[in-house]
Design a protein around this nucleic acid. Structure first.
Length: 112
DNA sequence: TGATTGACCAACT
DNA sequence: CAGTTGGCCAATC
């Protein structure tokens, strides 16, 4: 009832549901929400999630190529990579190794 | 209050 | 093949 959830809120819901040792992409979340064009909002929401100290594993969210673009926003240029490697995800040159294998698609996994 | 930006993606030229 | 533009929503200037 009258649950006015903005894209912004939905991003938090999906991002917080990313399983351990998995990664997803901004476009995947945006597409899951209904608009792949909102991919920019996803990244922006992640940034706010960190600023607001939300418990959002934003380090599990990378771009479509598996490239870690927003690592600088974690308070350190290597923080994000360390977090991913800490979860068993290999990272090389700001890119996730075997990204497709670690890829977690909300449309496929959540499918809601 | 209007205009610009933002951790992107895909299509078009 | 590479560069540019459009699109989406919300926040910031």
């Amino acid at each position: 009832m009258t649950e006015k959830i903005s894209f912004f809120e939905k991003v938090y819901e999906v991002a917080s549901q990313i399983p351990f040792g998995r990664v997803t992409s901004y476009g995947a979340i945006a597409g899951f929400l209904g608009s792949k064009g909102s991919a920019r909002m996803v990244g922006w929401a992640m940034n706010k999630s960190i600023t607001c100290k939300k418990n959002i594993p934003a380090h599990r969210v990378v771009n479509r190529n598996g490239m870690i673009t927003g690592k600088h926003h974690f308070g350190g240029p290597d923080v994000m990579q360390q977090l991913l490697e800490s979860e068993g995800i290999e990272v090389s040159d700001n890119k996730v190794v075997n990204f497709t294998k670690h890829f977690w698609d909300p449309v496929t996994e959540l499918e809601y």
